[in-house]
C-alpha cells in the first residue's frame, strides 16, 4: 500500500522523467548539434551529459533538444543555449566534462562560460 507521501515521491520522480513532454515557451533551451559532423566529433555523450546534469539538478524549466548541422562542422560539437529574452550563446568543441560548468554557471546563474564560447575559437 502506498501512503500519500509515497505517492508524492512517485509523482516527483516520474515528473522529472516526463518533463520533456511539457510545452514550455518561456523556458531555457539547450540545443545540441546532432548531425553527422556533430556525432563524429562526439556530440552524443555531450547531449547525454546535458540531459543527466539538468535532471540531476531538477531544472524543470530547461529543455534539452537536438538540431541538425549548424554549419560550422570544424567546431563541433556545438551547443547553443537560449535564455529567455537574451541572445543565444554558442559553445564550441564541447566535451562532456565541460557540461557541469556550463549548467551551473550559465544556465543556473546566468553567466556564460566565456572561455568555451565561439569567440574564443574564431
Amino acid at each position: 500500500m502506498k501512503t500519500l507521501k509515497e505517492l508524492e515521491a512517485i509523482r516527483q520522480k516520474t515528473l522529472n522523467e516526463l518533463n520533456l513532454r511539457k510545452n514550455r515557451e518561456d523556458g531555457i533551451r539547450v540545443v545540441v548539434g546532432l548531425a553527422t559532423c556533430g556525432i563524429a566529433a562526439g556530440a552524443r555523450p555531450v547531449m547525454a551529459a546535458f540531459v543527466d546534469e539538468v535532471n540531476k539538478r531538477q531544472l524543470t524549466n530547461v529543455t534539452v533538444s537536438q538540431t541538425g548541422c549548424i554549419g560550422l562542422c570544424r567546431l563541433e560539437p556545438i551547443v547553443e543555449v537560449y535564455l529567455p529574452g537574451q541572445e543565444k550563446v554558442t559553445y564550441c568543441k564541447v566535451t562532456p566534462d565541460q557540461v557541469g560548468r556550463i549548467v551551473s554557471e550559465h544556465i543556473v546563474n546566468g553567466n556564460p562560460v566565456m572561455e568555451y564560447t565561439i569567440g574564443n575559437f574564431e
Binding site: 500519500l4 505517492l7 512517485i10 509523482r11 520522480k13 516520474t14 515528473l15 522523467e17 516526463l18
Partner: peptide, 19 residues
C-alpha cells in the same frame, strides 16, 4: 501519458484528488 503506466498518471496529479 502511457495509459498502462500508473506512475505517469500519478505524475500529472493523478490520485492527488483522492488523497
Amino acid at each position: 501519458i502511457d495509459p498502462e503506466n500508473i506512475d505517469e498518471y500519478i505524475a500529472f496529479d493523478g490520485y492527488k484528488a483522492l488523497g
